[in-house]
Amino acid sequence: MSRSSTVNFGAPVQSGIVHSHFNVQAKAPQQPLLAWRDRVGHVIDVLPSLSDLEKPFRASIDRYGVGQLAFTDCRSDSMLLERSLTRISRDSIRDYAFHVFLEGDVDDVAVRASPRNRASGAASILVLDMGQPVRMRRNTCRVLTFFVPGILAQEMFPDPEALHGRTMQNETPLTGLIVEHVTALSQNIAGMGASVADSAIRTSAQLLLAAFGKQAGLSGNARAAARAAMFGRVRRYIQANLSNESLSPESVLNALQLPRPTLYRLFQHEGGLGAYIRHLRLRQAADELARYPHVTVTEIAYGLGFKSSSDFTRAFRRAYDMAPQDFRALSMEGGQVLPRVRHNEPAEISG
Rank of each mutant, 00 (worst) to 15 (best):
S243I: 01
V196C: 10
M230S: 11
A210P: 03
E180R: 13
A226T: 06
S204L: 11
L247G: 02
A226E: 04
L218W: 09
G193Q: 07
R233T: 05
S195G: 06
T172P: 10
V179H: 09
R235H: 09
A190N: 03
T203W: 00
V252L: 09
T203I: 07
A240P: 03
Q206Y: 02
S219T: 14
E250G: 11
S246P: 00
E245W: 10
E171M: 09
T167G: 08
L174G: 04
L174E: 12
E250K: 15
A240N: 01
R235Q: 10
Q239S: 15
M168S: 06
V196D: 13
K214I: 11
A240C: 05
R202N: 09
A190T: 01
A222K: 10
L185V: 08
G213A: 05
E171A: 14
R233A: 03
L174M: 13
R202I: 01
R233S: 02
S195R: 14
S219Y: 06
A229D: 00
I238D: 03
S195C: 01
N170H: 13
I189C: 04
A184H: 08
S248G: 01
T172H: 03
V252W: 07
M230P: 06
N241Q: 14
S246N: 14
L185D: 01
A211H: 05
N188P: 02
L185P: 03
R202H: 02
M192I: 04
H181Q: 14
R236E: 09
E180H: 14
R236G: 00
S199G: 08
D198R: 13
V182Y: 06
A222L: 08
S186W: 03
M230D: 07
N221Y: 10
N241T: 06
I238M: 14
N188L: 11
A211G: 02
A194R: 05
S246T: 08
E250F: 15
G193M: 01
A200Y: 06
H181N: 12
T183P: 01
G213I: 11
G220L: 13
V234L: 05
E250A: 15
A210N: 03
R236C: 07
E180M: 12
G191N: 02
R235A: 05
S248K: 08
Q169E: 09
G213E: 07
S204Y: 00
L218R: 13
A222T: 04
Q187Y: 04
V196M: 07
G193T: 04
M192L: 15
S195H: 10
S248Y: 01
L209S: 02
L242S: 10
A216G: 00
Q239Y: 11
D198E: 09
S219W: 03
T175C: 03
Q169I: 06
E250W: 08
T172K: 11
G232M: 09
L253V: 03
A210D: 08
L242F: 10
G232F: 06
V196S: 12
E180S: 12
A224K: 14
S186G: 13
L253D: 05
G220I: 10
S186P: 00
R227W: 08
V234Q: 04
R202P: 06
V252A: 10
N241S: 13
P173Q: 04
R227K: 11
A205W: 01
L185F: 03
S251E: 08
E171H: 15
G191I: 00
S248E: 01
A224Q: 13
T172V: 01
L208V: 11
M230L: 15
L253M: 07
I238R: 13
L247E: 07
Q187V: 02
A184W: 04
